[in-house]
């Protein structure tokens, strides 16, 4: 494996559609829950320990060889909001395209055939990491980082927040990213014996509810 492949996959410029999504930040800004760097940090921390943890465990499990069909069903079960399911599948489809062009693999081809409209993004992320020769922990790191870097960069655009402040938020969260990534991999390793019920189901009800409201906004900058 090449460890540098992790940098390619985790790069915010990896062309897989993430730029059009705010990870719930636009809805939170609209509701007055994110107003500055401090509240952005609280939002990111909440997202990391809920959606971030779940995504990371799904991605790690995909790297470990759990069948995508089972993981996709597990992701659906952990995503009550139809708007978030749709966003996750759209992003999964875009990542499938980008990953197939970047790291051609029979597994990704099979995934594209099985899910022509996209599987949940974390599942695809895991298979992309696998195709890139990366390990479960690498995919988990990608997922936890995405869970906070998306809202941070969106908030820079939404609030004209100082970009240095937003980046410092990410740096302060780094030790927690380490812990959540490890936790996710541990859960993913249990899937072999216990099935996908071993995956975390940490839920953030406000993210789910706000995503439904956001999807109905007539004017918005981000798709989710």
């Amino acid at each position: 494996m090449s460890r540098a492949a992790l940098l390619v996959l985790a790069d915010g410029r990896f062309p897989a559609g993430g730029h059009a999504h705010s990870g719930g930040a636009e809805a939170a800004v609209g509701a007055g829950r994110i107003t500055d760097a401090e509240s952005l940090e609280a939002f990111c921390r909440g997202r990391l320990h809920t959606a971030g943890l779940v995504s990371a465990a799904l991605a790690a499990a995909a790297v470990l060889g759990v069948p995508p069909r089972e993981l996709d069903a597990a992701a659906d079960a952990r995503t009550p909001s139809p708007a978030l399911r749709l966003a996750a599948r759209k992003l999964g489809r875009q990542l499938t395209r980008a990953a197939r062009a970047t790291w051609p693999s029979a597994e990704l081809d099979a995934l594209a055939r099985e899910f022509p409209k996209g599987a949940h993004q974390p599942v695809v992320l895991g298979l992309a990491a696998r195709a890139a020769g990366l390990e479960a922990v690498d995919a988990a790191y990608c997922a936890v980082y995405e869970s906070v870097s998306g809202p941070a960069s969106a908030t820079v655009r939404l609030l004209s927040l100082d970009p240095f402040d937003a980046t410092a938020v990410l740096a302060r969260l780094a030790p927690e990213l380490d812990r959540v990534a490890d936790q996710a991999v541990e859960a993913a390793r249990n899937v072999a014996d216990e099935g996908t019920d071993a995956l975390p189901a940490a839920s953030a009800p406000l993210l789910e509810i706000a995503a439904e409201l956001h999807a109905a906004w007539p004017v918005r900058l981000f798709a989710s």
Binding site: P15, H19, A98, A223
Partner: peptide
């Protein structure tokens, strides 16, 4: 196509959508 406030990204840098 929704562009996250950046049409130039969606038509040039990340054309997946």
């Amino acid at each position: 196509v929704e562009t996250g406030a950046c049409p130039h990204t969606a038509i040039r840098d990340d054309i997946s959508a």
